[in-house]
Amino acid sequence: MADTTAAKGGRKVSKKALAKSFRNWYYGNLTCFSQEHMQTFGYLVSMLPIVEDLYDKKEDQQKALTTYSAFFNTEPQIGSMIVGVTVGLEEARANGEAIDDETINGIRAGLMGPLAGIGDSLIVGTLIPILLGIAMGLSEGGSPLGAIFYIVVWNLLAYFGMRLAYYRGYDLGGAAVEALVGPNATALRDAIVMVGTMVIGAVCATWVSISTSLQLPGGGTLQGTLDGIYPKLLPLGFTILCWWLMTKKKVSPIVTMLILLVIAFVGAAVGFFGAATIAAPTA
């Protein structure tokens, strides 16, 4: 990969253009989404300030910008690093380094998959659920505290995290990404996913409340018997059932919901599920 850290003596992207480019990505990465070109236009507008800064002639700007019209899609928060990396590459190209469209698009296409995987599992699949789990605890009973906590903490993390990723991508080029997939980074990622998995377990026990109103023939309730075996056994059982359907049987979430509808209907008809007020504790 080409050395992107510094332009040798020649042109350097101004601070103002970098800030504008980052802002455009931060806001506009998905605003014009289509199935065909997911984040392509978000990418184009974030490269626009850069090419205007680096090239004086209109034709050169247009030619450079056309490079970024190839399909692009990744997890947009962590993906800001890729934008940063290409800004570095574009700067090197403006200074006469032999970097062609294929090189840039090859790097872009090579990075978007792995970073989408990291971003989806770490940010969308772990960080946001943890924050939401804590926020729901704070909002119990209808307090706005949890919602406010989530709004503030998430947005600070997202903005400064994306900013850091963008500038690190620009400063370090490919090395920034290599650092994200190195052995220690992988260990850290596993540890974070571990926190996420435990918190999901706690969320399941706290926020899912399924109970049965079935009376046992010999007196007592089925719920009482189940609680004796393990508390919250029904939420756990139904969660594992859904997981099994979606993972092992490849059933889509919508079909899984329809299966639950059938279970709910049959359960209500035979008296397994009663009026929730009688049996279930307040969520």
């Binding site: 999901i200 899912v208 859904c242 997981w243 979606m246 993972t247 929730a276």
Partner: peptide, 23 residues
Amino acid sequence: KTLFALGSLLPCVGIAILLKQVI
């Protein structure tokens, strides 16, 4: 009754989607 029962079951789908990713 079906509506209430379904409402108590649906959160399992959300948790299971998450589990699918991390397990």
